[in-house]
């Protein structure tokens, strides 16, 4: 991400879990493993708030490597990462759909 240029709105805050490296998303009261649980900053004021949380997270170092990521909201209201890299990161390897968050979601669907 180019320094000084913030991700475009709407956006979410993402990072990696310190202990297991899982992709996590800021969910308001804490960090969640699924993008569908992420809190969304839709305007400048909320984005500024996310930037402050990002700075706090960096200082705390847990979760690690936080950054802001642009999303779009599809017709069903689901969050979709704006860039293909982020889509892969939020789901798991496209060549191994049995691994990563996509597999977790799959399992949840089965158990429900």
């Amino acid at each position: 991400m180019a320094a000084g240029k913030r991700a475009a709105l709407p956006l979410v805050l993402t990072a990696s879990d310190l202990l297991d490296g899982d992709v996590v998303f800021y969910a308001g009261a804490g960090w969640a493993r699924g993008l569908d649980e992420a809190a969304v900053a839709a305007d400048e004021a909320q984005a500024a708030q996310f930037e402050a949380i990002l700075a706090e997270t960096e200082a705390k170092g847990d979760p690690v490597a936080p950054y802001l990521m642009t999303v779009r909201i599809d017709a069903d209201g689901a969050l979709v990462p704006g860039h293909v890299r982020e889509r892969i990161r939020s789901r798991g390897p496209t060549i191994r759909t049995d691994l990563g968050p996509q597999a977790r979601q799959e399992r949840q669907h089965v158990s429900v």
């Binding site: 990696s16 310190l18 202990l19 297991d20 490296g21 899982d22 992709v23 960096e58 170092g61 847990d62 690690v64 490597a65 890299r85 892969i88 990161r89 798991g92 390897p93 691994l99 990563g100």
Partner: peptide, 25 residues
């Protein structure tokens, strides 16, 4: 893990042992 090393301090130590942080893990 107990917080006495920051990520910045820890990063070169984990890299020296071949541990990277990648896209998913």
């Amino acid at each position: 893990i107990d917080g006495s090393l920051t990520e910045e301090e820890f990063l070169p130590l984990r890299l020296m042992n071949g541990l990277y942080l990648q896209l998913h893990a």
